[in-house]
Design a binder for these strands. Structure first.
Lengths: 147, 147
DNA sequence: GCAATTCAGACCAACTTAGTCTGCTTTGAA
DNA sequence: TTCAAAGCAGACTAAGTTGGTCTGAATTGC
């Protein structure tokens, strides 16, 4: 179980932006060159981020993307939900899949595990912002390099 | 992000066994009739569980499957890892994907999130056993029905 | 007006999932 | 000794998802 590359790439891009000055306008080209991603794919990811109001865009020459708010006000939860749909799919939750009769899961002893899992992940991702990540990066980088 | 049906079905089956007497031998047919699963698919799942030494099997007439140890000694982590491969795929972890050079992830600011995620899930699933689930089921069932 | 940029959406190959299917082997009991 | 009931092994497959690509707009600043 893992998140898709959309989330992975999206977070890398947002983190890149967070580390720049506030209101910094970044272009797809710039970010693709720095991070060595596929241009078309990143474009699509930014469309999703724009739809979720995490970034704004400006068309035309000197256009590009900027964060809609401070890095400290953009939580991981919001980003993951925008790119992935949800932090964790409880799957058998009746309210999330209307029309589907759940034969096994809804009332069974297994479901509470998934509810609890989602609860934990939501809480974790709600407590981490882009600023958290940007701030701890150098320190984290060192740790990893030493280990 | 969610676990596959292998894990879902596998847990339902194991929970079914846990609620029976210790050393109870269950057949695929019995469990399939009770839970309304596909026979062939459940067979495959039990092969995996046997490979992970979570159940033992006995061939031939009056054969079937039994838990290898007490429900209280079978953690969710062990079951999920057997059926899913891992509780959470940190993805860019160099040691898990030898030969693959990670361009973006390994040293970047995003990776610690996934490390932390895996840590939390591992800890959660290590603290829950089949006995926990079997024990809390009736109570959980009530809660759900009331809500 | 032109070059740089985003925007929209159709398209697609490869992979994964959730199974099915066929037939074999082992075993207990009649 | 036979036979039916079980597990065992593995090839196969349809449908869905992932991780993109590609074409061609529309918009904007210089």
């Amino acid at each position: 179980m893992r998140y898709t590359t959309k989330t992975e790439y999206g977070l890398v891009c947002l983190l890149y932006m967070a580390k720049k000055m506030p209101d910094y306008v970044v272009t797809i080209k710039e970010i693709v060159q720095t991070e060595n991603f596929s241009e078309s794919y990143i474009e699509k990811i930014f469309q999703t981020l724009r739809g979720a109001n995490i970034v704004t865009s400006h068309k035309g020459k000197n256009g590009g993307y900027a964060l809609t708010r401070q890095p400290s006000e953009i939580t991981l939860k919001v980003v993951i939900e925008a790119l992935e749909g949800h932090t964790f799919d409880v799957y058998c939750e009746p309210e999330t899949r209307e029309g589907i009769v759940c034969n096994h899961f809804c009332m069974c002893g297994v479901r509470p595990i998934w509810t609890r899992t989602k609860q934990m992940l939501d809480q974790l991702y709600d407590s981490i912002t882009l600023a958290t990540l940007a701030g701890s990066e150098s320190e984290v980088r060192q740790k990893v390099l030493v280990a």
